[in-house]
Simulated assay, not measured.
Amino acid sequence: MLSPEKLARINELASKKKTIGLSMEEAKEQSALRKEYLDAFRSTMKDTIENVTVIDPEGNDVTPEKVKEAKKGKYPN
């Protein structure tokens, strides 16, 4: 995940954008920080989903095949 300083800067720029607006440099910085944040979020979400096993009420593994294939690629036997 992003550092607390970067998250604080994202919030600072968002607040400034709503009140007085951003300069071109600040807008570019905001865009880059947002991209970095989304990349980190997506990576974390992907790792979480790849480590999930879905079990139905009868105890059967009903994990989607796409997730099973991703696990095999990540953790080959």
Rank of each mutant, 00 (worst) to 15 (best):
G59K: 06
T63V: 08
S23H: 10
L22T: 01
Y75C: 04
S23I: 04
I10C: 02
T63E: 06
K16I: 10
K72L: 09
A14Y: 08
E69I: 11
Y37I: 05
M1A: 13
A32D: 12
Y37N: 04
D61A: 07
L2I: 12
K17V: 01
K71Q: 15
K28Q: 11
G59R: 02
A32I: 02
G59D: 03
A14G: 13
I10T: 00
R34C: 05
K17Q: 15
L38Y: 13
P4I: 09
Q30F: 11
V67N: 01
K71G: 07
S31D: 08
S43I: 05
E50V: 11
S43A: 14
T48I: 12
K18W: 02
L2D: 03
S3M: 08
I55S: 07
L33H: 02
L13W: 03
K68I: 14
S15R: 14
Y37M: 11
L38M: 14
K16E: 10
D47W: 04
E50D: 15
S15C: 01
S3F: 03
L33W: 01
A32Q: 07
A27H: 08
D56W: 03
A27M: 12
L13Y: 06
L13T: 06
D61L: 07
S15Y: 00
K68Y: 01
Y37Q: 09
A14T: 05
T19C: 08
K28N: 06
R34D: 06
M1C: 06
L13Q: 07
P57I: 04
V67R: 01
E12F: 13
R9S: 07
K68A: 09
E25T: 05
I49P: 00
N11Y: 01
N51I: 04
A8R: 12
L7A: 03
E25D: 13
V62L: 07
G73F: 03
E58G: 11
K28C: 07
S43L: 13
A8C: 03
K46M: 01
K46G: 01
M24I: 15
R9G: 05
D56C: 08
G59T: 05
K72R: 14
K46R: 13
K68F: 06
V62A: 09
F41D: 02
I55A: 05
I10G: 07
G59N: 06
E12K: 11
Q30V: 01
V52P: 00
K74A: 15
K72A: 11
M1S: 12
D61W: 00
P57E: 01
K18H: 09
D61V: 11
K72W: 03
P76T: 10
E65I: 15
V52A: 02
I10K: 04
S15Q: 14
K71N: 06
M24F: 05
N51Y: 00
M45V: 14
N11S: 14
K46H: 11
T19V: 14
K72D: 05
A14R: 15
V52F: 00
K6F: 08
T19L: 15
V52H: 02
K71C: 05
I10A: 05
K68W: 06
S23R: 04
Y75H: 12
K6T: 03
K71M: 12
P64C: 09
G59P: 05
A27R: 13
L13R: 03
E26R: 01
T63Y: 07
T48R: 09
D47Q: 10
T63C: 03
